Lab assay of single mutants.
Amino acid sequence: EPREEEAEKYIKRANGDYDKAQELAKKDGNEEIAEAIKEYKKR
């Protein structure tokens, strides 16, 4: 799923820090991806 791939990219950029990844996504205006990262975190 493209959303998950995007989320993974942010998580990698944030060195595995989900909260930081979420912030990066929000900064880029990717609210949807920020949500996907939140879902990811719950797994």
Rank of each mutant, 00 (worst) to 15 (best):
E1G: 14
E1Q: 12
E1W: 14
E1H: 14
E1A: 13
P2I: 13
P2N: 15
P2W: 15
R3E: 11
R3D: 12
R3C: 12
R3I: 15
E4I: 13
E4D: 14
E5Y: 11
E5T: 14
E5I: 13
E5Q: 12
E6Q: 11
E6A: 11
E6F: 06
E6T: 12
E6W: 10
A7C: 14
A7H: 05
A7T: 07
E8W: 14
E8C: 15
K9H: 11
K9E: 14
K9L: 07
Y10L: 04
Y10S: 02
I11N: 02
I11G: 01
I11E: 02
I11W: 02
I11K: 01
I11V: 05
K12N: 10
K12T: 09
R13T: 08
R13E: 13
R13K: 12
A14N: 01
A14Q: 01
N15R: 08
N15A: 07
N15Y: 09
N15T: 03
N15F: 10
G16C: 09
D17N: 08
D17L: 01
D17M: 02
Y18D: 01
Y18H: 04
Y18F: 11
D19R: 05
D19A: 09
D19E: 13
K20D: 04
K20P: 00
A21Q: 00
A21V: 01
Q22R: 07
Q22E: 11
Q22L: 14
E23I: 08
E23P: 00
E23S: 08
L24M: 13
L24Q: 08
A25P: 00
A25Q: 00
A25R: 00
A25M: 00
A25K: 00
A25Y: 00
K26P: 01
K26G: 04
K26L: 15
K27G: 08
K27R: 11
K27N: 11
D28G: 02
D28A: 05
D28E: 12
G29Q: 05
G29K: 04
G29Y: 03
G29A: 04
N30I: 03
N30F: 14
E31C: 12
E31N: 13
E31F: 15
E31L: 14
E31T: 11
E32D: 13
E32W: 12
E32G: 09
I33Y: 04
I33L: 10
I33P: 01
A34W: 06
A34M: 09
A34E: 05
A34F: 05
E35D: 10
E35G: 05
E35W: 06
E35C: 07
A36K: 13
A36W: 15
A36R: 11
A36E: 06
I37D: 02
I37E: 02
K38L: 12
K38Y: 07
K38N: 08
E39T: 05
E39M: 07
Y40P: 02
Y40G: 05
Y40Q: 10
Y40R: 12
K41T: 05
K41Y: 07
K41S: 07
K42Y: 07
K42W: 05
R43Y: 08
R43K: 13
